[in-house]
Every structure is written in C-alpha cells, then in structure tokens.
Design a protein around this nucleic acid. Structure first.
Lengths: 181, 181
DNA sequence: CCTACCGATCGGTAGG
DNA sequence: CCTACCGATCGGTAGG
C-alpha cells in the first residue's frame, strides 16, 4: 500500500507497473497477487482510505455549531494539515481516482461532490448572515478548493514554512484577501 | 494535435494510446508516423504551444508599467480567459508535462518556475508599496496559482457563469477576500 | 495511408 | 514468495 501510494502519486497510476511496486517492496510482481486482487483494487483502497480525513471535515462543516467563518477557517487549516500528513496520498486521491471504473468511480465522484457542497453550504450561511462579503458562492467555493488542492503540488515539510504557518497563511489570504484592509 | 490534446487532457498521456489518437483522426496507428516522430514529440509540441499565453502573461507582469494591483488583476483575468479558450490544452500543460523526459522536462520546469516568479515579484512590489496587506509572498503566490490551476477542472463554457464573470469573480475573491470589507 | 508485423512490456495466473 | 509463463496490447517500422 505504501509503495503503491508513493508510485501512484509520483508517476501516476497508468505509468506505474505492478513490477515497479513489487520492486519497491522487494518481491516479484506475481507475488503481490497473494495479497491483492488487482491493480485497480489497490487504487480503490488507497483512494478510499485517503478520502477519510476529508469526509470527516465535510461532517464538521455540516454539523459543528461554530459560526460559519470559524468553521471555514478550521476546515481550511485542517485540510492543509491532512495534506501535510501525506502529500502523496492526497495526490492519489486528487488525480488518480479517474482511473477507477464503474461503481467505484461513481462513488468517488459523489464523495468529491459532497466535500464541495459542504464548503458551499458554509459560504451560503455566512453570506446570509452578512459575515462574508457579497460573493458568488460557486466561484468562492472553487477558489477555496483550488487553493487547497494545489497544496500537495508545492508543500514540503522541508520547505521554509511549517505546516501551521502554511495553514494560517492560506486561511488568512483567503479570508482577508491580498489587498491591505 | 487536436485529437491528442483532447485525449491527453481527458485520459492522461500514459492512458492514451497511439491507436486512440489514430481512431479519433480516422486512420490507423502506423499512419500517424508519417506526420510525427514519436508520441513524446507530440506531447512536447502540445505542451510548448499551450504554454505560450502564460509566457506572455509572465512578460506582462514583469514589464508593464501599471501598478502591481492592476497587473495582478489583469493577469488573473487573462489567465482565466486563456484557460477558457481551451480547457483541455491547459489540462495537458498542467498535468501531463511530467511525462516529458530529459532536456524537454527541464525546460518545462523552468517555464513553470518563471511563471510563478512573475507573480511573486508582482506581489513583492505591492507589499513594498503598501497596497497589498502584510503577507507571506510565497504562500500568497501559491494561493493565486492554486485558484488559477483549478479553473480547468471545473470551468465549462456551458456553466452558469460567463468567462468574464468567472474572471472577475476569482480576481475579486483573491484581492478582497471572503470576509466582508 | 494501409498491410503486416516487430520486440518489449503489461496485468495477471498456475503450480510448487 | 518464486518459477515460468499466458494473451493482450503497447509504440513504432518496413514496404508498398
């Protein structure tokens, strides 16, 4: 699982062969099939597991009692922490889920959609209460998701900023904007 | 080129076969090699062409005489228009360039880096002049790029908003923030 | 542009 | 977990 996560995230699902995975584990390709059913089932397991922290964040956005701006800031920061926890796992869940087929594909699409909707609902609430500026909720949702989904492409635990600095910095930039207040 | 752009953007470079491309063009796979040297040379040509509008935007950010907040807003809006002009071309340049090898890979990495640096330099200038709030330039740069690089994943010309509405909406959200001013 | 094909490599399996 | 292998498919080529 770890070897596959690393390779799928780094090279992509289609560019990773079972022989690549086996070589990283230290066995031959055929031996892997004593533990898994197929290459696709391996991808499914990784994507499903990797989605877990984000599903819990959607729950939080939908059910927590804090005001919308607090829930939004918390979710943004927690999302960053989840990415930092495993960059490669997040890269797989972001880009490789397309290679799932049939019902598994449909299920992941629904999970992604639900995550988006949790942000939209929170924004909607904050616009209604007047804490968020007049804004197009659809566009604002994709603004937030764009920022969050780009994090695994550039964040490194060896980078100049700590996870918390990045989490706060991104939340601040999104909530306050680039122009001076 | 068009068929390959569509397929590379949609399914990914590694999941697209020369037979897929040939079938969309209406010939057999072998016939393509009268026009191209290799699958990778096809990817290189698409990625290089697709980078062109963004290289011109980097030039603009670096050399235009307008104040930084105007250059930033213009670049954001023009970037959105370039994406809208061809979603699939942008998807290829965003995700498939990794499958280039050797000097071609290195060249694309440099072009991406230069685009990032143009935004960073503009932000730096605006922070120095006081028009942008106190912010971490590195984090703010990735905030902007994250928003822009997510656009091809969700924008559709058949969506509820026009290109201009999206371009203005994203620029507003980034510059002014989500919280009411 | 097609016919006919190539060597390599793929995901996966049978049997031990 | 390895040996030994499979059918399918890949990018690409020679010759017409």
């Amino acid at each position: 699982m770890d070897a596959a996560t690393h390779l799928f995230g780094d090279k992509g699902y289609r560019a990773t062969t079972m022989r690549d995975i086996a070589s990283e584990v230290g066995v031959l390709a055929g031996s892997l099939y004593a533990h898994i059913d197929s290459k696709e089932s391996l991808l499914l397991e990784i994507v499903t597991d990797a989605f877990d922290p984000f599903t819990r964040l959607a729950d939080y956005l939908e059910h927590a009692s804090e005001p919308p701006e607090v829930r939004l800031r918390t979710a943004i920061e927690e999302h960053v922490r989840a990415v930092a926890d495993s960059r490669e796992r997040t890269l797989v869940v972001l880009h490789q889920w397309r290679y799932l087929t049939g019902a598994q594909y449909t299920r992941i699409v629904a999970m992604r959609r639900r995550y988006e909707d949790a942000f939209s609902a929170t924004l909607e609430e904050g616009v209604a209460s007047g804490i968020f500026g007049p804004l197009d909720v659809r566009i604002a949702t994709f603004t937030i998701l764009g920022v969050l989904n780009w994090v695994p492409e550039w964040f490194s635990s060896k980078g100049p900023q700590t996870v918390d600095e990045v989490a706060h910095g991104l939340a601040d930039t999104l909530l306050l904007g680039l122009l001076r207040r």
